[in-house]
């Protein structure tokens, strides 16, 4: 019974849910996870330190010949306007990452709050919120995206708005289900019996147990958002030229794919690396923190 649990936990080398050391130990055993973490660090570092890394001004036209092949001077060649592709790609990571983190950060925060309220509040409020979540989710997201961009114009803000609005219900539902399960657990009753208020219970005893799966969801959603953002740029619905952006580079390359394939390849590689990195990292986090979540998430 209980002793067995303790024994088993001890045998599994668990240190307690909070200890960072045990997390690192488990993480270091997961090879794909380590690879993912490295890729993510690489993508982040290159975006943050972009101004130090770039070899040419990414926006200036005709720093070199048009559509030049990769060379020592232009590591990944140049595009049709003679801009340095390498510099554009390094700088171009900033927007997808900004979009991903702003939109998912907003979704996480709002989804969490709404989920906690729905899961812990009165039944009627839960029902109302669920109805709203399901309405938003059932609305076709492409049409919604096109409508918003049509109204607000193509911009980073519109993309963030679209992504946040469509992912909040998903996160809120996950948070709500977790909260609801905890609501009837004995330790919550124990806290209530000591006189703890709802805010305290939610913040100290529910939130830390709910946030784990959500963080995992976020890290697994980052690649999808990057792909969506790149896709919108590719379709010309993203940021305006000449701002460097992975989707835009890919779009430029696509037009000249027959003669100068390296341009398209150079536009695709960072998207692939970032996507793989976040996916591996997300899966590793899931396996460590919540093996029960299963592979289907």
């Amino acid at each position: 019974m209980a002793t067995v649990q303790a024994n088993r936990a001890e045998a599994n080398g668990e240190q307690g849910p909070g200890t960072f050391l045990s997390f690192l130990r488990q993480m270091s055993k997961n090879r794909l996870g380590v690879l993912g973490a490295l890729l993510v660090v690489l993508v982040f570092a290159s975006a943050i330190f972009a101004p130090l890394i770039i070899t040419h001004d990414p926006i200036r036209i005709m720093v070199g010949p048009r559509l030049a092949a990769p060379s020592l001077d232009f590591l990944l060649g140049t595009d049709q306007l003679g801009r340095d592709t390498f510099s554009r790609i390094i700088m171009g990571g900033r927007i997808p990452l900004l979009v991903a983190f702003a939109s998912l950060g907003i979704s996480l925060a709002l989804g969490l709050v709404l989920g906690l309220v729905a899961g812990f509040g009165p039944r009627w409020l839960d029902n109302v919120l669920l109805l709203i979540f399901d309405t938003i989710r059932s609305f076709p997201s492409i049409i919604f995206a096109l409508a918003v961009i049509g109204l607000l114009g193509p911009s980073v803000t519109s993309i963030i708005f679209v992504i946040a609005t469509t992912s909040i219900p998903i996160y809120a539902r996950v948070a709500r289900t977790q909260t609801e399960a905890l609501r009837n657990s004995e330790y919550i009753a124990a806290e209530q019996s000591m006189g703890a208020g709802t805010t305290r219970i939610l913040a100290v005893h529910v939130l830390p147990n709910v946030i784990g799966p959500l963080i995992i969801l976020v890290s697994m959603d980052v690649p999808a958002v990057i792909a969506v953002q790149a896709g919108l740029s590719f379709l010309g619905l993203g940021v305006r030229p000449p701002t460097p952006d992975w989707g835009a580079v890919l779009n430029d390359g696509y037009n000249y794919i027959k003669n100068t394939p390296w341009l398209a390849i150079a536009g695709g590689i960072p998207i692939i690396l970032a996507t793989l990195g976040f996916t591996f990292l997300g899966e590793a986090l899931r396996d460590i923190f919540d093996p029960k979540l299963g592979k289907d998430l």
Binding site: A2, Q5, G16, P17, G18, S185, E186, Y187, A189, A190, E191, S193, M194, G195, A196, R200, V204, H205, P208, N209
Partner: peptide
């Protein structure tokens, strides 16, 4: 005060014993 049936399940899982024992003081 009350103690609940499940010995482990009635303790908030992410708190250390020290935090668990100072909960009543913080709450009051």
């Amino acid at each position: 005060t009350m103690t609940f049936q499940d010995p482990i399940g009635s303790l908030s899982p992410r708190l250390t014993v020290r935090s668990l024992l100072s909960e009543p003081f913080r709450i009051h």
